[in-house]
């Protein structure tokens, strides 16, 4: 069971967090990481345009009573990219932040892992008084939480 890396991309396409969990990978420079994040952001936007638009929910007297959801059911774009050596899973939050997990191809339960990472992000990044939204994440407790979680899993 191997998790290679985690990247978090802000809603404007900037890389705000990246972390490698596995040693012995060929190193990317921080500039490469920024380019990678930017290209993925663009590709994700294109693919979400390509995918067919979701059905507009039919308004009936019953569901008319409910308040409209502030988050429309948008097409999601790339969710998984697989190759012979890695699997890249993307999770986009309702506010547009993207989490990318790079794992081994046969890695099970990436969804649960993603959920846990999102939970750590919500707790230790969003609830941190000294974090500014859309800025690079430098939170000691988030790092520590990820370490503990990946170590336990791996």
């Amino acid at each position: 069971m191997v998790v290679f890396a985690l990247m978090i991309i802000s809603k404007s396409g900037g890389l705000i967090y990246n972390r490698e969990f596995h040693t012995g990978l060929s190193k990317l420079t921080s500039n490469d990481y920024l380019i990678l994040a930017g290209s993925f952001h663009g590709m994700h936007a294109i693919t979400s345009q390509l995918s067919p638009a979701p059905r507009i929910p039919y308004i009936t007297p019953q569901n008319n009573m409910l308040a409209p959801s502030p988050f429309p059911n948008r097409p999601t774009g790339i969710e998984v990219m697989e190759s012979s050596h890695f699997r890249l899973q993307c999770f986009q939050t309702q506010t547009g932040t993207k989490f990318l997990l790079v794992t081994e191809p046969q890695q099970p339960n990436v969804d649960t892992m993603m959920k846990k990472v999102y939970e750590l992000y919500a707790d230790y990044v969003m609830k941190n008084p000294f974090y500014t939204v859309e800025m690079p994440i430098r939170c000691e407790k988030f790092d520590r939480g990820l370490d503990g979680f990946i170590k336990v899993r791996g």
Partner: peptide
């Protein structure tokens, strides 16, 4: 519980 201090405020205790 959720506070990570930035370097310039490392001596702060919330």
């Amino acid at each position: 519980q959720y506070v990570s201090l930035p370097r310039e405020l490392s001596s702060l205790n919330c």
